[in-house]
Design a protein around this nucleic acid. Structure first.
Length: 307
DNA sequence: CACTTGACCTGTCCGC
DNA sequence: TGCGGACAGGTCAAGT
């Protein structure tokens, strides 16, 4: 669920909070969430000062003065929440009730509850008493320590496609990269992090709706003008979402434990049963590439002869 | 190599 | 009310 805009929002928050802080203590409860040995932690994390907070695709990179980095992938339910010394995050019960009642689409701004909670996997404590909590209900995410110089070399990062918001990512590059997957449904292709980095299920659905392309359309059946529309849609939607502080879906919160507001702007994601803002037809939910997929059945049609 | 499906996990929701 | 099953969706491994 944290996709590029959510991770970027967290990065911006942590960049304003972490640099200059020195790590004093680390606690963790689940080996897959934090696989490093205690001797590495002692040598390269404890006593190190945070120098920078970067992002590549959906991965956050916290650089340390020890020339090691702490890298984190939040997968679906991960959170990184900074709590200043003495500050207690307490959930406002009326906001939590609103959350339950209205679900992820409701533009609430509630804080997470008191931490640590049972989803807490790692706690970093800093000199001065502030803490950074890595929470992850489903335990798919991970945090690990490695030499900064090795970050670009780990398999996952090495294979990543280009950052879609960088200037170097041109329409020609987008078209060339999706062409590697001629027979795949376009949704599977833009979700593939080795084609381009950072798009997940929410922004895939939104982009394809904006470009009026059926998510199951094989790449080779998409005309060039539509490919360019899709390229623009992806960039516009990711940019808008970052401006909105990321989405407000389910488990996502920013570095201060607050929700974003992007889903207020979402046109199709989780809006099945509601009407398409452009044409008024009911949005439906289907399954494409093994994932829940939301489309306008009138404007996003499969080309003749496909499936 | 191109492409698809299931596994990893836990919490929530839906139907009986 | 309890209970089983489907579902959530990012990535990897194993399948065709």
């Amino acid at each position: 669920m944290p996709e590029l805009p959510e991770v970027e929002t967290i990065r911006i928050g942590l960049q304003s909070l972490l640099p200059g802080k020195t790590v004093k203590k680390v606690e963790h409860d689940w080996p897959k969430s934090f696989p490093n040995s205690s001797s590495d932690v002692k040598k390269f994390l404890i006593g190190a000062k945070i120098t920078d907070v970067r992002r590549r695709a959906k991965v956050l990179i916290i650089d340390l003065s020890s020339n090691y980095s702490l890298i984190t992938h939040l997968k679906m339910t991960g959170q990184l929440v900074f709590v200043p010394k003495g500050h207690k995050l307490t959930a406002d019960s009326s906001q939590l009730t609103a959350e339950k009642k209205f679900g992820g689409g409701h533009p609430s701004n509630s804080l997470v509850g008191r931490l640590p909670d049972k989803s807490t996997r790692v706690i970093l404590e800093f000199n001065g008493g502030a803490k950074l909590f890595f929470n992850d209900q489903r335990k798919f995410g991970w945090m690990r320590l490695l030499p900064t110089i090795q970050v670009p070399e780990i398999d996952f990062i090495k294979k990543l496609g280009p950052e879609p918001l960088e200037d170097a990512f041109t329409p020609d590059i987008f078209i060339e990269r999706i062409n590697r997957r001629q027979n795949s449904p376009i949704k599977a292709v833009i979700l593939d992090q080795t084609v381009l980095a950072g798009v997940g299920n929410i922004y895939a659905d939104e982009s394809l709706w904006l470009a009026k392309i059926h998510p199951a359309t094989p790449v080779k059946k998409i005309p060039k003008n539509k490919r360019i529309l899709l390229y623009r849609a992806i960039r516009d939607i990711l940019t808008l979402s970052i401006k909105s502080g990321g989405s407000s879906d389910k488990n996502y919160v920013n570095a201060e434990g607050k929700k974003g507001s992007y889903l207020k702007f979402a046109q199709v994601f989780r809006r099945d049963g509601q009407t398409c803002p452009r044409c008024g037809i009911e949005i439906i939910k289907i399954r494409v590439a093994g994932r829940g997929t939301h489309i306008c059945p009138k404007e996003q049609r499969l080309p003749r002869g496909v499936k």
